[in-house]
């Protein structure tokens, strides 16, 4: 990214992954099953509009984080350790590196339209599903490409060569989350 100031402009490397967290409304409890939200509907709409459309469109994964139940919270059983998850992530990245060998790409998120055409091929059932998703969620062109890239990553994690409709539907699911 290039920073221009009075004394000149300078280009810095700026490759990053954005993880954002937000509340669903001003009081924070909209959609919560246990605590009532005190915001008016117009206040909620105003609050949610604070993330602009263009910005929202760039989040490949949108996910709701609900309240944790007491039983889960107090249970002794933890989930998987980061170590185990990291190994799966590394394997998926290795598959991507093998695919992008000789190119200046590092991960699936960096893919351009030509790479998407080459590596994110859908079968017929996938095509139908995608068509329905674009229509139903009124996906933008960028949104369409991002869903395909996400599906590619899910396939890489699963260690599969082809993007089946099951993987694609998970990618679409991550795209369509929004508290109504």
């Amino acid at each position: 990214m290039t920073v221009s100031r009075a004394s000149g402009s300078v280009t810095f490397p700026a490759s990053f992954m954005l993880v954002a967290a937000q509340n669903p409304c001003m009081c924070g409890y909209h959609g919560d099953p246990e605590r009532a939200c005190t915001c008016s509907s117009s206040a909620i709409a105003r609050y949610q509009k604070r993330i602009s459309g263009p910005l929202l469109d760039r989040f490949d994964i949108q996910v709701n984080v609900p309240r944790v139940k007491f039983e889960k919270l107090s249970s002794e059983q933890g989930g998987e350790s980061s170590e185990t998850i990291r190994q799966r992530v590394c394997e998926a990245r290795l598959r991507q590196q093998a695919r992008f060998r000789g190119k200046r790409l590092r991960s699936n998120a960096d893919m351009g339209p030509s790479e998407i055409r080459a590596y994110c091929v859908l079968d017929e059932a996938g095509q139908d599903l995608m068509k329905a998703a674009v229509r139903h969620f009124s996906l933008s062109a960028r949104g369409y490409h991002r869903v395909l890239k996400l599906a590619r990553t899910i396939a890489d994690l699963a260690g599969r060569e082809h993007i089946g409709p099951d993987l694609l539907s998970e990618a679409i699911h991550f795209r369509s989350h929004r508290v109504e």
Binding site: I61, G78, N108, A109, K149, L150
Partner: peptide, 26 residues
């Protein structure tokens, strides 16, 4: 504890360097 679907989402995000937006109660 819990939040298995969010963990899954973050795993996918880490695997492909995708951006994530998490929405939830405080």
């Amino acid at each position: 504890r819990g939040q298995e679907h969010v963990k899954r989402a973050l795993e996918i995000a880490a695997a492909g360097a995708h951006n994530v937006l998490m929405t939830g109660t405080p």
